[in-house]
Every structure is written in C-alpha cells, then in structure tokens.
C-alpha cells in the first residue's frame, strides 16, 4: 500500500543527534586513543626504516602505509584489524538501544518514518568513521612529510585517497553488520558479541577454514594443471567471501603500484611473460581491484538492506 510523505523526513535530525552522541561518547574517546596510538606507533617505526631507501623508490610515501617492521604489522594491517572494531562499537546498540531506553515508540510517534531513524543512525556512524579515518590519514601524511622531509607526489596522494575511500567502505560493511545484529538481538551485549564473533571468524579463522575446505570442495589432480588452477581459484573465491580479504587486496593494489595481479589471482608464468615490470598507472590499479571494491560496496548494501527490511517488520512494542 502506498504511503504518503518522505521516507527521509527526520534523517538530518537523527543524524546530527547520533553524530553528537558518537563524538562525545567515552566509547569514541577510547577508540580514538587506541587507533592513534597504534597507528602512530606503526607509522613512526616504519618511517624510520623507509627513510633508508629514499631515492630508490618513487613511491616512498606509500611504503609508509604498507611496510611492516616485524613484529609490528604494517599500518594497513593495523587498519584491517581496527576498523571493524570501531564500526562494531558504533553500531551494535543502534536499534536495540532505543528499545532498551524505551525511547523507540516515543521517537517513532513523531512525524518520521522508521526509514529516517535507520538511515540517520547509519549515516551518523559512517560519518564518524570517515572523520576518524580522514584525521588519521592526514596525521600519517603529515608525520611522513615531517620525518622524511619531502612531500607526496600527486599520484601518491591519489592512491592513498583511494585507499581512504576503500577503508571507509570497509568500515561501512562492519557498521552495517553491527546494525543488523542490533536489529536482530534485543540485548546490546548479545549483538556486540555476535558482531565480534563474526569479526574474529574473518580476522583469524577464515584463512584456516579456506585451507581446510578448498581440497574438500575442489580436490586437485596432481597430473592436471587445469584442475590445480581450479583448486587455487576456489580457494581464492572462498577467501574473498571475507571482507578482510577484499580490503587487504584493495589496499595492496592501491598502495603498491608494482602490483600487477600476481598476488591477486592466478597468473601463470606464461601470462606474465613479456610483461614490463614496473609501476602500473593509477587507473590500471583501480581496474585491477575494481571487483574487490565493488564487492565491499555490495556486501555493505546487502547487509544494510537486510537490516532495513527486518527493522521495518519489527513490532514497536517492547
């Protein structure tokens, strides 16, 4: 049945309120502290090492993002790990929190649709993540300029900006997941645990599962190259179900211009024959990981849509 009035009524009001809540919450202070300390630590030690090779690499700035000094992971590795935590922390009590505070029916009795509430909350979360990541990004670039004494090139800025956008999309996936759980579970603690379990699964156990499952799904025939290629492709396909894989592959292509696909899929030696080694232009790198980027956006839209549909069908009474 058609309904009258805009679905977006109140989105702005909800978003501004949630944004203010997010930015002033203790939760956010803690997370910001965590990110900046780990991020700065990683970048600081990396720059120390990268400085040694100034002049040898035209993309020295991008190395700051991708080089890890063992035992510390690289800055990108840290982000792959920390972004989900921020996103989950911002989203896990979005919807059920309104029920638990008994504010849901009062807010929905105002002249807005449920759509407005959900959109507003999601946009506020995404805006918070974007602000935190952009600040961090500027901080890293600034630290690089200060410590290495040279500015990034245009291409480096473009590549790292593309990486920033991909990180925000990656945050969006986890935010949508956390919001979905906040719709499904009435208890905020359950929703947080469920979201963290999914994060744990993808961050630590997914690769192990892929190794276990691939030979079962597509056993390799030692005498057939085609079958071996198939096995590897199935394994890659499985591992790309994880948003973490999509994110790290995207980061790799954006931040490492020398990446031509050899780490992103199956390339037989003869396919690389005659290939000129050296950096790819930016547009080519984008083309290389376009499926991964599209995958990130698609999973984020899918999760949000599921949350949206479930929320629309939910009973208002607590």
């Amino acid at each position: 049945m058609p309904r009258e009035g805009s679905a977006f009524a109140g989105v702005g009001a909800v978003m501004m309120k949630e944004l203010a809540d997010n930015l002033s919450s203790t939760r956010m202070r803690l997370l910001e502290g965590l990110i900046f300390i780990t991020g700065a630590g990683a970048v600081y030690s990396t720059i120390g090492a990268v400085k040694e090779v100034i002049g040898e690499d035209p993309f020295i700035f991008l190395r700051v993002f991708t080089t890890g000094i063992p035992p510390l992971p690289s800055f990108v590795g840290f982000l792959g790990f920390l972004i989900p935590i921020i996103a989950i922390a911002l989203g896990f009590d979005g919807v059920n929190g309104e029920f638990n505070r008994r504010t849901m029916s009062r807010i929905l009795a105002q002249p807005i649709y449920r759509d407005g509430l959900l959109f507003g909350k999601f946009l506020a979360g995404l805006a918070t993540i974007s602000m935190a990541l952009t600040a961090l990004w500027l901080f890293v670039i600034g630290l690089g300029i200060w410590m290495m004494g040279l500015p990034p090139s245009t291409e480096e800025v473009m590549r790292s900006l593309a990486f920033l956008v991909a990180s925000i999309a990656y945050g969006g996936v986890w935010l949508a997941l956390a919001m979905l759980f906040s719709v499904i579970f009435r208890s905020a603690a359950t929703a947080a645990l469920a979201a963290l379990s999914v994060w744990l699964l993808f961050a630590f156990f997914w690769q192990m599962l892929v190794v276990l499952l691939t030979p079962i799904i597509a056993p390799a025939d030692p005498y057939s190259v085609a079958s071996q290629v198939h096995t590897v492709e199935v394994g890659l396909g499985l591992s790309r179900l994880s948003p973490n894989t999509l994110f790290s592959e995207t980061a790799l292509a954006f931040l490492n211009p020398a990446e031509r696909g050899q780490n992103l899929g199956v390339l037989l030696p003869q396919q690389l024959q005659g290939a000129i080694s050296g950096p790819l232009p930016f547009a080519e790198s984008v083309g290389l990981v376009w499926p991964q980027v599209a995958g990130l956006f698609a999973s984020f839209i899918l999760l949000f849509t599921i949350a949206y549909v479930l929320f629309q069908r939910q009973e208002v009474r607590a």
Binding site: M1, R3, E4, G5, A9, P111
Partner: peptide, 8 residues
C-alpha cells in the same frame, strides 16, 4: 496506515 506522518 497511508498517511502516518499527518496523523503523527
């Protein structure tokens, strides 16, 4: 059902 905003 159809004009909830007006009602609310």
């Amino acid at each position: 059902l159809r004009q909830p905003l007006e009602v609310k």
